[in-house]
Amino acid sequence: MPIVDLKNVTFEYIRRDNEGNVDGITTAVDGVSLKVVPGEFIAVLGANGSGKSTLAKHINALLFPTEGAVYVDGMNTADEDKLLEIRSAAGMIFQNPDDQIIGQIVEEDVAFGPENLGVPTEEIRERVSDSLNAVGMSEYGLRSPDRLSGGQKQRVSIASVIAMKPKCIIMDEPTAMIDPEGRREILETAHRLNKEEKITMILITHYMEEVVDADRVFVMDKGKVAMSGTPAEIFSRVSELQELRLTVPQATGLAYKLKMAGVPIRDGILTGDELVNAIMKLWPVAK
């Protein structure tokens, strides 16, 4: 059974002008169908306004489709009785680290989810310390979130979601407001949780480097899935990506330029090492 199953999901909202009159209808998500298998690491790419955030909020039952249906772990998000179950099965990390930390100390924040779920006190304590451990923030349990760096705050948010024992975590541009070092911390944490705890990850981003290690990539454009495939497949379609206001990692871009100029190297190069190997393979021939 897929952990996330989107069936022809469409989401529309009504735009209003200053006087409150209906100005038009915007279709933010337009007939998206996709399945995510448990344990996968999925990346969703897309320009600003491509509908990727709106789509993400459907998986956590914060938004509901105008048409189509969303199933999380077999539960339909339209089923109101299952709401809490769905939200704890599919946890969500948001972009702004400051606006999602509710507790005044780290520990309290991590406990917020389990408290809402009515988990007994001793178990909450256990979950809090396990979750903080899992994101490498055990020493910060009693700190105020205000004193943490952006990367640390996002790791606290991840811990807060893990404390609800989710099967899947949706991360909605978690690195957009974070510096490179913090970005690395967040990405490492996500990949480790995916490998070690087998939590399915859905990462929404427009940093191309963050996509390289994903299992599958979806590229959204104007509410639709415009491209899908492995990172290697996606990144070999450089000009299409550029048309969608995106780009490719530098290694891929360089490989593409060389290939265009007639250098015989393979498609789908993602990392610097791959590119160096490909070029050096040609080199001994000259000697």
């Binding site: 330029k257 100029a261 610097g272 070029i279 080199w283």
Partner: peptide, 29 residues
Amino acid sequence: VPEVSEIVAELSAAGLPIRDDIFTVDEAA
């Protein structure tokens, strides 16, 4: 440093006779 400078440095280290003061994709290509 930019990823492309790392690539250029590695190529140079691997024996490709290449300038090492390169930091944009266009220049590297």
